[in-house]
Simulated scan of single mutants.
Amino acid sequence: MNSRARLSVVVVTHARPHAPEYHAYSSVLVERAVRASERAGWIVDVIAAEDEGLDASLRRTVSSDALLVLGGEDIAPEFYGAARGYRAEGRHAERADEAQIALVQRAVRRGTPVLGVCRGHQIINVALGGTLLQDLGESSAHRRDAVPIERVMATHDVAVAAGSSLALTLGDVVSTQSAHHQAVDRLGAGLRVAATASDGLIEAIEHVDAPVVGVQWHPEDAGAPVGQLDALLTRLVLQVAVAA
Rank of each mutant, 00 (worst) to 15 (best):
V28P: 00
V10M: 02
A102P: 01
H121P: 00
S175F: 03
W217R: 03
R106H: 13
L168W: 10
R110K: 14
D172I: 11
G163E: 13
D55T: 15
V34E: 04
I202C: 06
A141T: 09
A222L: 09
V11F: 05
Q105R: 15
L201Q: 04
A96E: 03
Q216K: 10
V44H: 04
A82P: 03
V237H: 02
L168Y: 10
L233S: 02
A99C: 08
T131S: 15
M1V: 09
V212W: 00
V114F: 02
D135Q: 12
H156Y: 07
P77Q: 14
G227N: 06
S57F: 03
E206R: 04
D51M: 12
V152A: 15
R59I: 07
E52I: 01
R6W: 05
V126R: 00
S57P: 02
Q239I: 02
R87T: 10
L191Y: 12
V62C: 14
D185S: 14
L132V: 02
E98V: 09
I149R: 06
H181Y: 07
H92P: 07
A189E: 11
V174G: 04
H142N: 05
G171K: 15
D172P: 03
A19Q: 11
G81P: 00
P17A: 05
A204Q: 02
V104K: 01
L238R: 12
A222I: 06
D135A: 13
A222T: 08
R59E: 14
C118S: 10
A76M: 05
L232Q: 04
G163F: 06
S175A: 12
L70N: 01
